[in-house]
Simulated scan of single mutants.
Amino acid sequence: MSQQKTFSEGFIDGYRSVKGAGAALPGIPAHAIPAGKTEYQHGYDEGKRKAADS
């Protein structure tokens, strides 16, 4: 069983790190993982960016 977290988990965690734990979530965007990042890391960064932009 894999212990790696997914892009979606990272996106949710990143979004809620800015908006708060009870924040309504936007849709999870389509994504490609850049070299040098895990799915979770990229998702977290994208979630924070989306929260800051909204």
Rank of each mutant, 00 (worst) to 15 (best):
E39Q: 15
K37C: 03
G22H: 03
G36W: 06
Y40R: 13
A35P: 12
Q41S: 13
D53G: 14
S2N: 14
M1Q: 11
E9P: 12
K5M: 12
A51F: 00
G22R: 04
Y44C: 03
P34I: 10
D13N: 15
G27L: 13
G43F: 00
K37W: 13
Y15P: 04
A51I: 00
G47R: 07
K37Y: 06
H42N: 15
K5Y: 13
I33L: 13
F11G: 03
I33E: 09
S54A: 03
Y40S: 09
Q3F: 14
P34E: 14
F7N: 08
P29I: 00
E39Y: 09
A24L: 07
G14C: 11
I28D: 02
K19R: 01
Q3W: 12
G14M: 01
D45L: 05
D45H: 08
G27E: 08
I12F: 05
A30M: 12
S54K: 13
Y15L: 00
A52M: 06
Y44S: 00
G47A: 03
Y15H: 04
L25E: 05
P29D: 01
D53V: 09
G27W: 06
E39K: 09
S17V: 03
T38C: 13
R16C: 00
A35G: 11
Y40D: 11
G10I: 06
G43T: 01
E9R: 08
A21V: 09
E9D: 11
V18H: 04
K50N: 15
G10L: 11
Q41L: 13
D53P: 05
F7S: 12
P26D: 11
F11V: 05
A32N: 09
F11S: 01
T38E: 08
A24N: 10
A35C: 08
G43K: 05
S2M: 09
I12Y: 02
A24I: 08
K50L: 15
G36S: 14
T38N: 12
S2T: 14
K48D: 01
F11C: 05
T38L: 14
A21W: 03
A51G: 07
A30D: 15
D13S: 13
K37A: 13
R49N: 15
I12V: 15
D13F: 06
R16G: 00
F11I: 04
T38D: 03
G36C: 01
M1Y: 13
R16K: 12
